[in-house]
Design a protein around this nucleic acid. Sequence first.
DNA 1: ACGTGTCAAGTGTTA
DNA 2: TAACACTTGACACGT
Length: 437
Amino acid sequence: MQPRGPFTGRLGYACLNTVLRGQKPPVFCSRNVRIKTIEEKGMDYVRDLARANVADLIPMIEWSAANNIHFLRLSSEIFPFASHLQYGWDISFLQAELKAAGDVAKRLGVRLTMHPGQFCQLGAKSSTVLEASLREFEHHCKTLDLMEMGPDSIMILHGGGTYGDQAATLERIENTITTRLSASARARLVLENDELSYSAEELLPLCEKLSVPLVFDWHHDALRPSSLTPTELMPRILAIFHKRGIRPKFHLSEPRAGAMTLRARRAHSDRCGQLPLELPSDADLMLECKDKEQGVLHMYRIYKLFEPDVASLRPEADDATTRTSGRRTKLDGSGGSSTSPRKKAGPTAKEQERSLIARTIAKAKEVAARTGRPYTGPPDEEDLARLRQAELSSRDVLLDMRKRADAVRADLKAGRPRTSTAAEDLDEAGALAEEPE
DNA sequence: ACGTGTCAAGTGTTA
DNA sequence: TAACACTTGACACGT
């Protein structure tokens, strides 16, 4: 199905290895703590957690290399509260352990990157937020420095908020980058287009001016498109990486099947199924999907890049819906939930079901009127199952997103205002347009 | 052991 | 206005 050429680059996953996490004892690098516990147990407890997190870096890197994965993102939770104003602490006492992990990564050829959280606002107006952002960013940098990682170990940030004035905020970001970052932090900084505030095109002028590479994210680009297509943007994106001597890096995620609203489409699916056509064949691509390393192995199989070790494979969830944050609520409303179930992620399963039935009936009536055939009543279970399948297919969502992104691009090129990329209805979702038997 | 509510931090969008 | 989406799930407590 894919017309793209062979992919020779590296696929990576972020922060957590679900296979190792499930082992006994578990291997993971994101042990965390609450403030209350810090106050009860003291900082030594936090440092012990951090030591355990660092110790698990090595098996995670080794497992990855053994499974042909040479690209990882380190979790920001590896050092809980390290940059906190009140409960912060110095990671230097772990220098030897960090260097050991870095040595393993370099020996096995595993690229390590980091991605500080949304709290890092280089364009913040508030000095409190800006100082916290700088502490956090420099802390991430110190982690990679202590591991003695090379220039490919970059740190990704988004533009962040716009504070109602994108141009003014971009100036503040520039000022922060040029006057507030350490040399090492600036050397590792890269920016990434996001899906709400800064498209690739809106970041590129700053990136080009300061020689800060841009990590291009296809999913974000679909939700906040530039006037230029990814193909048109690609030479500019690659030029900065090449100028800096940093291996290009990209991000890929996909919306969950059935996602129609903007909110739902922002969320990430369990796995990815399509390599972007514009992806350079030798690029590093970070997969941001819920199934982590399984997403990479999944892609290895789809594109026949590697034959994964059977022992490393886990089956794909069969009950994934538009619900996110690890929720696995089925369409019929049953199913477990690993996080707070009373909080809604989009419409509830019952609401989705009601809506689906209503639209289906309306469509059937319309078809009946158009074709002269009698309307035979509401859909039965079999109809619904078929419609769910067609309507909620991830492929349909991707195609719809691409189509809407193209429309936004056309608007931007024509100087018209930016419009929404969200789907308002399901009329174009494949099987719904089919006529009943 | 398991289920569930909550957790350091920011911003924008939506129901 | 509160919930939720994002780069990332785990802690902590109650049953």
